[in-house]
Computed example of a mutant assay.
Amino acid sequence: MQEQQTPVAQGASAAAVSTDFIRTSRKWIRKRIEQLDPYVDYQEIWALSYIYNVTDFDLHWQYTVDNSHLGMTTWGADAAYRDGTGAMIVQAEQRTTNTNDHMLLWAEHGPDSPVTKQAIDIVNKQHVKWAKHYKGSFSHSEDYIFLFSAAATAEHTLKRSLGLPGWSEKQKIAAHRFWCGIAELFTVESGEVLTDVEPMPKTFEECAAYAQAYSERPWPENPIGAPFTEELIKQFLEAWFPQQALRPFGRALITTFFAPSLFRIYGMKQPHWALQSLARGFVRARFIYRDYIRADEKEPITERHRRLVAKGRATASRIDTTVHRAVGKQNPGGGCPHARIN
């Protein structure tokens, strides 16, 4: 019997994927992606690739790995670490949640949505605020392009490095188009639109090459990045590896996936080869289990979180709440598929 095909309405969130379609297969996401046009449906493809089968552990792991690289540049470390007073340090749990919630909202709604535009407006205003204290730190267009290029290509690159199949051609095209759309919403310190200063790479492959080249630049040693990164690792370990005996493995689970240049820049030691092998095997096994064994989730993690909030079993996301309230005020007749969180 042919599977029922119900396309997502234009402008709808990823949560609007047909439940009739979902019920037809345990591994429905790959089949759904195969039906879509990446040049038109790139937002849905990115959402299906990013926010359905992801877990809170995955989000925290990726946050820790990604943000550990902020200290590759002295200005990046200064703006994030702030002499030990930065939110990543003194408000660690909330900062982690806020960052992940931004990424999830963008993925759920897409670059053209008023929800995403409102969320990124918050980020731009934060950058303007901190640029007054750390002049020049938010003026480097290549830092933004690196982050967005890495975001588009990181999972594919990681899977290939673990000997696993990477993303399909449709996922690559969709990821590139999605992050090009996100980049167009950001401004640099001068107030100029980021992509007017420096365009995004033209293809997925060029994004991957850009991210690699950036991380392999001969950046000068930056010891301020080490204590900053140690704090991020400590936060991850306290959340997911409370047993002291597992801490060395938990630490290797982060540092194994650092850009090689980071150890020189920070003056940090690489993990023991045995721990590296364990970490790579662990991540590889998680991908295999998620992609080939377990049933695909029927709703994105954003909706799972909202459902827990509605049941009183979780705290509402500050970002989700703030953004949807603002969008609701700006568009009293609609504009967002979710009920406003009070």
Rank of each mutant, 00 (worst) to 15 (best):
Q5P: 00
S13Q: 06
V17K: 13
S18N: 12
I22T: 10
I22D: 13
T24S: 09
S25C: 08
W28A: 12
W28D: 11
K31D: 13
R32Q: 14
L36D: 04
D41E: 07
N53W: 02
T55V: 04
T55S: 15
W61M: 06
G71Y: 03
T73K: 04
A79M: 07
I89T: 04
E93H: 10
A107M: 12
V115R: 12
V123E: 08
Q126D: 03
S139Y: 12
S139H: 14
H140Q: 15
D143F: 06
A150I: 01
A151S: 15
H156Y: 08
E169R: 13
K172W: 01
A175M: 08
F178H: 05
F178V: 02
W179S: 09
E184M: 05
E192V: 00
T195E: 01
E198L: 15
A213L: 04
E216Y: 05
P220N: 14
F228I: 02
E230P: 00
L232V: 05
K234L: 12
Q235F: 10
Q235C: 10
L237P: 00
L237N: 04
A239N: 06
F241K: 13
A259G: 03
L262S: 08
I265Y: 10
G267D: 02
G267P: 00
K269Q: 15
S277F: 01
R280T: 03
R280Q: 12
R284V: 03
Y289I: 10
Y292K: 15
I293F: 06
K298W: 01
I301E: 07
E303H: 07
H305T: 11
R306W: 11
A314M: 12
T315F: 00
D320W: 12
A326P: 00
V327N: 10
V327E: 10
G328V: 04
N331T: 06
G335Q: 11
N342Y: 04
